[in-house]
Nucleic acid binder design. Sequence first.
DNA 1: TATTGTTATACTCTATAACTATA
DNA 2: TATAGTTATAGAGTATAACAATA
Lengths: 162, 162
Amino acid sequence: MTATARRRSSAVPLRHGVPTRSGPRPAIALDVLNNHLGYFARRLQIWVFQDFIRTLKRIDISPAQFSVLVVVGANRGLSQAELAATLGIERARLVRLLHRLEGRSLVERRRSDADGRRHALQLTPRGRAALARAKALAARHEQRLIEKLGAARHAVLLDTLR
Amino acid sequence: MTATARRRSSAVPLRHGVPTRSGPRPAIALDVLNNHLGYFARRLQIWVFQDFIRTLKRIDISPAQFSVLVVVGANRGLSQAELAATLGIERARLVRLLHRLEGRSLVERRRSDADGRRHALQLTPRGRAALARAKALAARHEQRLIEKLGAARHAVLLDTLR
DNA sequence: TATTGTTATACTCTATAACTATA
DNA sequence: TATAGTTATAGAGTATAACAATA
């Protein structure tokens, strides 16, 4: 019988939910999850996004919207298919994302004169201003990550993933 | 005018979608996304999960289900709240996850005799067998990641994130 | 009063398929 | 026939709030 199983089925009743034994609870074993990169990648992503979302909430920009504004801002005239492929978003999802950004007058869709099927994407003046504010907030968010992870670990992760 | 914008609005018509200039297309700039850990964490997570999902599809186990089976298997008698906190899943979401696993007779919910509010979770014999198969497939998936990333990079990521 | 498991709701995201217009 | 953008749909995941049973 494991220590954990013993704790659960203990014959000794607990009072007010406080363990009768003092000291910290036995840690919960992650077993083989410790060997799986996917598990930690997911935890890291959730943790980082929570701070990012909180930081950019006051200008109402989500992580996905941020990535769209940045890439359109740096690549004027991009098509939706190219943007979707670059960011790894579904084309179908990008449509609604752009609907909102266009509704807020941050992004503009112009028909391409070279190819009538394509939309050439570009930021509006308002979009450029919003992107500048978003970049400043995102930089503060990243600075917070560096403080929490330590500069060395942050650099190792970024260099390895890039 | 940027090279990208020139390409899009080029006065030279393209034939059959093939660029008139030979050579590779100009790369699309990621700009400040290159400095953001969150962007790469998301890309990594999506990339890893796609292979994981493909690998475990034939036994119908998702990443979330796998993590539940592993942690319950290694910590018999765990409560739902403890499991949710360990894996970073919402308690409300765990309910439906467990409904399905219980419906497939992989997991069992027993009322805790020490605390009537809690469910003591444990694997059924079928659940233990499914977990064994899932672990074998997951190990093959991880081996594939190591081949694609290189053992050194894989180890750096796992050590840094753990 | 607080906690555990549960239900319900709304929204986001992912994965597809099909449609249209253009090429 | 292929591609770009669009629409629609189903399922998964996330975020909340509220509730009953139990502590």
